[in-house]
Amino acid sequence: MKGLFAAVLQSRAWRFWLGAAAVLTIAALLQWTDTEPAETQNLTLFAYEADRDPGLDPGNSVWERAQPVQVPLSGQAATYAAGGGSVPVVSVRAVHHKGTLYLRLEWDDPTADTSSYRPEDFADAAAVEFPAQAATTVPSFCMGQPGAGVNIWHWRADSEQVLALPTEHYSNAVVDWYPSTEDLFFTARAAGNPYALNASPVQNLVAQAFGTLTPAAEQSVQGHGVYANGKWQVVFARPFSTSDPELAAFGPGTKTDVAFAVWDGSKGERDGMKSVSQFITLSISGAPLAGGGPEDWPWTVAAIALFLGLSAIGLALGWYGYREARMGR
């Protein structure tokens, strides 16, 4: 037996193969046991190719197969209007399917703040930020800077609701008559304000510094949020390619920076008053999302198969090495 180990350890090739097997085994075990990497600014979020369209439903089973990354958040203290910090972490998953990138954010929030109807009501919200394609340097994650803009996808819970008239919102409200109800008399609507038009729960925005946030010409981001069991789950989706240099572009085999922000409406959070992350890496892989296939194997079966397969390789390698050693000496 002593000869066997010595031979294996002395051969460089064997060392390499053994090391590789060990790494694979540990990786498989980590996947299988759902262990998260430590919190760090060097987090990487992987987006693998899903074999099925996850759609905009955060409850779609595709998401169960994507590994979440826990992204730490903190209050915004860099500039006016500072505040936030009430949500410490957001759990993020990413996949892609047929040239569309999907992101799913999940965070704890004890109240679903879905209305902005009363003057004191602010809605819960979430945002994802990427450097613009045209950015020549990595922009500041705080809204970018001139020459290095950012592209922000912003979801707000009130935009999932219909924009009710006061007589619809308050069942006991009595109004004799509204003389005019065309858009012109909803000034912001006539001015093309996206919140007043209530066109989509998600706005595609660009910024090149604080206070410069502006809707992009291309409103190609879709999204949907669902609140259940004390958690918000929000999905964002956008096709990879875009012709607008101010927007982010994606593709299999590419990497980009991505940052996240979350607002808790009942704490009066809006604008810069938010819980925000630093940039992490989003790696879009051409490889398929694990656990796919026509039968859609349960994840545990795949993990056990991987473990058994690696064990078999290990045993075979061990046996081969033993035989070589015996034959060589």
Partner: peptide, 8 residues
Amino acid sequence: MYRPTTRT
């Protein structure tokens, strides 16, 4: 003043 029907 805040206007709820335009959110502005």
